Simulated scan of single mutants.
Amino acid sequence: MLHLIATPDQLAQLLAASRHQAGLTQAEAAARVGVSQSRISTLETDASALTLTQLLALCGAYGLQLQLRDRDEPSAEPAPLVEW
């Protein structure tokens, strides 16, 4: 599924949902990424301080792939609207 993220709050919600979907506890996710459980908790409520390294590690742990594209460039297929 394609998720369009425009704010840190949307990213925080996506991280929490993706962790749940991957069947991981915060402690298990933290161990995979190399941060504390409290850091995972913080990022799931406020992703504004998330580093790129942490984002990429979380994507790997949760089975996500980071993709960037120009907003003005039409995609091959219409993006589904995802409400957070």
Rank of each mutant, 00 (worst) to 15 (best):
P78V: 02
R32I: 11
P74A: 09
P74V: 10
A6R: 15
V82D: 09
R19F: 10
L2D: 12
A31R: 13
R32A: 10
R69T: 13
G23C: 06
G63P: 01
S48V: 01
Q65W: 00
E73C: 06
C59N: 11
S41Y: 03
G63F: 07
D9E: 13
Q13P: 01
R69V: 11
P74G: 03
M1C: 08
A16R: 15
A61D: 04
I40F: 00
L58C: 04
L55I: 02
D46F: 04
L66V: 09
L24M: 09
G63M: 06
Q26T: 05
A61G: 01
G34L: 07
T7M: 01
A17M: 02
L14A: 14
H20A: 13
A27H: 09
T7V: 01
Y62H: 15
L66Q: 03
E77Q: 08
T45D: 00
E73I: 04
V35S: 14
A49D: 12
R19T: 02
L58P: 04
D9I: 11
A30S: 09
T7S: 07
L14V: 14
A49K: 12
Q10D: 02
A30E: 10
V33H: 12
L68D: 02
L15C: 12
T45V: 13
L68W: 06
A22M: 11
D46G: 05
L56D: 10
E44P: 00
A22T: 11
A6L: 15
L52H: 11
A29D: 05
L56F: 07
S36A: 14
L56P: 09
A30H: 03
C59I: 01
E77A: 13
A29H: 06
Q21C: 04
P8H: 05
L43W: 01
P78G: 01
S18W: 06
I5L: 05
T42N: 08
D9W: 06
R71Q: 07
W84K: 11
Q54T: 15
L55Y: 10
L24H: 03
T7D: 04
Q13F: 10
S36N: 12
M1H: 13
S41H: 06
E28I: 00
L66I: 08
L64H: 11
A47R: 01
T25Y: 03
A27W: 02
A49F: 08
A22V: 12
G63Y: 05
Q21E: 13
A31V: 04
W84V: 15
D70L: 14
Q13N: 11
R39T: 13
A79C: 07
A61N: 00
R19L: 05
A49I: 07
S41Q: 10
L15W: 10
A57H: 04
L58G: 07
E77W: 09
L50E: 00
S48I: 02
Q67G: 09
Q13W: 15
A61C: 12
L56H: 09
A22I: 08
S48K: 07
R39A: 15
E73Q: 14
Q10R: 09
D70G: 09
L2Q: 14
Y62S: 07
T53C: 03
L14I: 12
S36C: 06
L81W: 07
L24D: 05
A12W: 08
T51Q: 11
E28M: 10
